[in-house]
Computed example of a mutant assay.
Amino acid sequence: MHNLARAALILMLLVPAGMAQAHHHARCVVDDRDREVCLFNPARRIATLSPGATELTYAAGAGEQVVAVVSYSDYPPEAKQVASVGSHTRIDLEALVSLAPDLVIGWVTGNPAEQLETLEALGMPVFYIEPRTIEGVASAIERLARLAGTEAAGQQVADSFRHQMAQLKTRYAEREPVTTFYQVWDEPLMSVNDQHLIGQVMQLCGGVNVVGEQSRLVPRLDDEAVLAANPEAIVAGGMGEENRHWLTHWEQYPHLSAVANNHLFFVPPSLIQRPTPRLVEGTRILCEQLDSVRQQREAL
């Protein structure tokens, strides 16, 4: 940050006095970088630095405490009314500091590390999130609620999420496997491995990830790798909630199983690419899509 001294002064002037008052019972949680984060008072001014972090914070019952978000923080709708401080890849630190957050929710692999380190150097508590499992999503909600003092509301949402995902897991546990390719990006072509949260959702639905054994969490691939795997289903998220154009790319390969059988599927990205309670809806859509592949098999 080119004007660190000025930012520090702004923070000292605007930070709530309560942050400086040490209470006997600190609120401590472990974040997704295995760091303990402690607050002496419930957070009252929260900055969320990814759309997923914004959604999780609202899910934890702390929406009214959010004072800063980043671009594409569009759910719930009221989040669009909160001040934006740039994008998750480039944060306007002066704008953020001027809002005097007493808690920053960072994204482990999505936010610039040096910018979050700057915020920590200014004395702002940074809680890093990046749920890698279904349980991790529920746990993130509980931990955020702990920091925000909204435990009851957060616990209710976390328990409901666990219950609904468990129901889907039971429903699809015995279904026949469907070889599946999930496209997370187009140029370069990118997917996910079995350790990724989306990969785990595929497994829950009975999908067999054709690139699941890749060593990278988000591997870069080429068309030839997909053609060689010949998945029964191709699923894409696209750049927008209604934008399916990534799927048309595959139609140039009519002998690809997913193309020949019209098994090119779209799931709105916010429902499956964000680690939030709406993952229930995205999982349900994906499971139903893979079930349609099984039904067509049976009809032949």
Rank of each mutant, 00 (worst) to 15 (best):
V126W: 04
F40W: 12
V67L: 01
P188Y: 08
V201W: 06
T170E: 14
A79T: 05
V67C: 00
R274E: 02
V226K: 05
P112F: 12
W185K: 03
L144W: 03
V280Y: 08
A138E: 12
M124S: 02
G52K: 13
S257F: 02
G106P: 09
G237I: 04
R297W: 01
A68V: 09
T133L: 04
L279N: 07
V267C: 00
H255M: 14
H88A: 14
K169V: 10
F40C: 03
Q155R: 15
G149S: 07
Y72R: 12
N243P: 11
R146T: 15
Q195M: 13
C28S: 06
A153H: 09
P77R: 00
V280D: 08
P268G: 04
A8C: 07
H23V: 14
S73Y: 02
S257A: 12
F265Y: 11
R146V: 15
L217Y: 04
E251D: 06
L4F: 13
A5Y: 11
F265G: 03
T179F: 01
D194S: 00
L217K: 06
V201T: 09
R175K: 14
M1N: 07
T179R: 03
H23P: 07
I272T: 01
R90M: 15
A148P: 10
Q203S: 09
I234H: 06
A173K: 07
Q195W: 10
E142V: 02
H255Y: 13
T150N: 12
A233D: 06
T57D: 04
N243K: 14
G18N: 11
V211L: 09
R45D: 04
S87A: 14
C28M: 04
L144H: 07
W107E: 00
E120C: 08
Q21K: 15
A153S: 13
G61D: 04
L56Y: 02
C287Y: 09
E176H: 15
A225W: 04
F265P: 00
L256P: 04
F40S: 14
A140Q: 06
P275R: 10
